[in-house]
């Protein structure tokens, strides 16, 4: 398929997944607010830090509060990673590949976008946030379901899944990281019910609470990390995402698993086997936050390699110069 089209599909999927996960971020916090003791209410800053856009936020809003963080992450068009920006970007990418995706997929993205425009006007995000962010998750799920059932599972579909899973792996790592920045009221609260409530909220925001419960009785930070980082069956765990992303990547190239013919295969394969042979105690002893940070960096490297391998315009020698200029 056309390199440009593959690129658009990959980003369309990433942006929809991004929108869904930002809704999940906000959801963690809303849950925490309901369950936390009074003195720790209103910790909205960690969300901004974890989203990676702290500077942009502080410049525009200053102090973090419920309303301005929600606005920044949801409707702020100046924030390229807000929900609305993500959906606009997904839609723009979809628009350039309408002939490749199914018309039902396009219609769903379009409806998602129109729903957000309505919500922006009506103020539901602030008034009934639980319903609203749940709706965003559902719109994304609907899109994924439609994609799965109306599009041939060929090259384009694998680019879609590759984009979605890499984005999801990144965002699960960030959801997990929220806890690192959440301040507990007192040092001695670590490991107490208050602390546990936080971990449960975190599982909830990754829709992981029930599945976690089936596997582990108690909520312990180590088991939560184990579940969200290394579980092989849970579809939002980081390792699960990488395993399936790798399948799609190799479906696209036709290269035998366990070998590589390009930079993208090599980097993704290496990152995946890091996780295959990782040990949760080792991760905890290095520090979960440090581990996640390193992981996000390597994942960015995979993204760059995918761009170089498939999407960058590979010019002929003769006109190499012109094309570089026009990019």
């Amino acid at each position: 398929m056309l390199s440009r089209a593959a690129n658009s599909i990959y980003w369309m999927a990433r942006y929809i997944e991004r929108a869904e996960n930002i809704a999940r971020f906000i959801d963690v916090n809303l849950h925490l607010m309901l369950d936390s003791p009074v003195e720790s209410k209103g910790q909205w800053e960690p969300l901004v830090i974890v989203s990676g856009d702290r500077e942009r936020f502080e410049e525009k809003y200053g102090q973090a509060s419920r309303d301005n963080v929600i606005n920044f992450l949801t409707f702020d068009r100046d924030n390229p990673n807000s929900i609305i920006s993500s959906v606009i970007n997904a839609r723009e990418n979809a628009r350039t590949v309408r002939e490749v995706i199914s018309s039902q997929m396009w219609e769903q993205i379009n409806k998602f976008y129109l729903m957000l425009l309505d919500a922006e006007k009506s103020g539901v995000a602030i008034d009934t946030p639980y319903d609203f962010y749940n709706k965003i998750k559902l719109e994304s799920h609907l899109f994924i379901g439609i994609t799965d059932t109306t599009m041939s599972h060929g090259e384009a579909w694998h680019f879609d899944r590759l984009g979605r899973l890499l984005e999801r792996a990144d965002k699960t790592s960030r959801i997990l990281d929220v806890k690192y920045y959440m301040l507990l009221p007192r040092v001695e609260d670590v490991g107490t019910p208050i602390d546990n409530i936080g971990w449960a909220a975190l599982l909830n925001s990754a829709s992981a609470f029930e599945m976690y419960r089936k596997k582990y009785r108690k909520i312990t930070p180590t088991d939560v990390a184990l579940f969200l980082v290394l579980d092989l069956k849970f579809p939002r765990s980081i390792r699960y995402c990488l395993v399936k992303a790798q399948v799609s990547l190799h479906e696209i190239t036709g290269t035998v698993m366990g070998t590589f013919t390009n930079k993208a295969e090599r980097r993704l394969g290496r990152l995946r086997s890091d996780l295959d042979y990782a040990n949760i105690d080792e991760i905890i002893s290095v520090g979960l936050h440090e581990f996640l940070d390193g992981f996000q960096n390597k994942l960015n490297g995979v993204g760059d390699a995918i761009f170089d391998t498939f999407f960058s315009l590979r010019p002929t020698e003769k006109n190499k110069k012109d094309i570089e200029v026009s990019q």
Partner: peptide
């Protein structure tokens, strides 16, 4: 894009095409 979708032909932009050795090619993955 609608016509490309309905006919199954490729939708290309100028940048997707390149002339080489007397033929026109499109850049694919």
């Amino acid at each position: 894009s609608f016509l490309a979708q309905q006919t199954g032909i490729e939708l290309v932009e100028g940048n997707d095409l390149v002339v080489q050795d007397g033929f026109v090619y499109m850049r694919t993955t």
